[in-house]
Structure formats: structure tokens, C-alpha cells
Nucleic acid binder design. Sequence first.
DNA 1: CGGTATCCCCATTGATACTG
DNA 2: CAGTATCAATGGGGATACCG
Lengths: 118, 118
Amino acid sequence: MANTTANSTQKECSAGMLPIKDALTLLSGKWKIPIIMSLSFGGKRFKEITKEVVGLSDKVLAKELKELEENYLISRTALDTFPPTVAYEITAHGRTLEKVILELKNWGLQHRKMVTGK
Amino acid sequence: MANTTANSTQKECSAGMLPIKDALTLLSGKWKIPIIMSLSFGGKRFKEITKEVVGLSDKVLAKELKELEENYLISRTALDTFPPTVAYEITAHGRTLEKVILELKNWGLQHRKMVTGK
DNA sequence: CGGTATCCCCATTGATACTG
DNA sequence: CAGTATCAATGGGGATACCG
């Protein structure tokens, strides 16, 4: 039962941590947010994403897109053309990330000012 | 001005990405935000953090604390006692992360509902 | 207690080649 | 074009031991 020590901390922390761990597990890493941002300006094809997100390889992009799709953040639509055309778009759920990304951006700006000595 | 083409996308994207990349580079990974959250409830000692943040090893904690300190997010105070006592605290700048963390938490909750089928 | 040093492993990445 | 297959290399993380 109760932890008698410095424990409301313990409790509140583990309780509050869950959704944050979820979010972190999914979004952490160098590429997912850049990919989502790239798509948030408009749907794109595979190759277009690799061009916009500098340093991102085909293999990694394929893996990231798969994870993002499995998590309902983007949609994938393959057209039966030749050569193949595949359109990636952000979903409504993906758009709910915009607030998070905005906060991240604001904080990044603030942090940069702090580090560079204002 | 009508940037109706994909060019504006390119420009806006790389411009807006910078602070986000900064933030991501610093905060990405499994541990930094959990550590900051743990400290946001009150200053703690090394061992106390390892107890609160489940799964975090000594080696990794030492590395993470170093990075957080270098980025002015936490402060480290060593007391000259035996056995040694070291107090870690969140800084004012570290507290500016609270909004980001809150958004992350809200989003994590929302995402979990979505994935578990509401 | 608060770490560092060392070894070791395996997961992620890069490079390259290939296919529908 | 939109990926997959394969191989090799790198390094981050666990386990353990040790030190001030």
C-alpha cells in the first residue's frame, strides 16, 4: 500500500507519466515530427518526402511511414499507375499533433535564445 | 502572395524546422522528460531519481543528467559530506518545459483513447 | 552515495543492389 | 517510382565491477 516516504511524488509521477511515455515512444526520434510537418503543408509522395526531409534515407522513411500509418497519424494511398504513385497525407488525428509541435517550436526558439546568450 | 506551389512548402518548412530540430535533438529519447518531470515535483538525489524513473540505469542517468545540466535545464549541487550527497534541481529555464510537457501529456491521453478504440 | 570503467551484444543505420 | 533484400559497421544500452 502506501509508500510512506516521498511518495505522493511517486504516485503522481507514475500516474502522470503514462500518456507522456506513450507520446514519447511514438514521437521520439529524429524523423517522425519532421515527416509530419512536411505532410502538414500538403500531401506528398514518397520521393517528395525524402527530398524535403534532409538526411532521411529511403529505408528509414519506409519504416517511419509504416509506424505513423499504424498509429493513424498519416494515410497511405497507392494509385494503380505506372510508374507507381503513392500519396501520403496527414490524418485528422495527425493534425491534433499541431499543438504539440507548436509548443515544441516555441520552446526551441526560447531555448536557442537562452543558449546563445540571448 | 500566393505561394500556390510546393515551393512555399519547402521554404516554410526548412525555416520552421530549425527550433523544432533543436528541441527534438535535446529532448528526444526515453529519459529526459521523465527525469525532468521527476525533478519538477521537487529536487532529488541521484539514487532517488533512479528509483522514480523505472528502468533507468545509473550509467544512462549520469549521461542524461550531464546533458540536461549543460543545457541549463537542471542544476547540480554536490555537498561535501560522507557519503557524498548530490542534489539535482530543475532550473527556471527547465520549468519553461512544463507547457511542452503538458501538451505532450494531453496528446498522449487523446492518442491512447483513439488507439484503444475510444 | 554517486558515479566511472569495461566488456559485450544487438538494434538501428548506411550503402548497395534489385524488383513490380 | 516506391519500395524490399542483403550485408556490414557503428554505437547505445545492459551487466558487472570498481573507486573517491
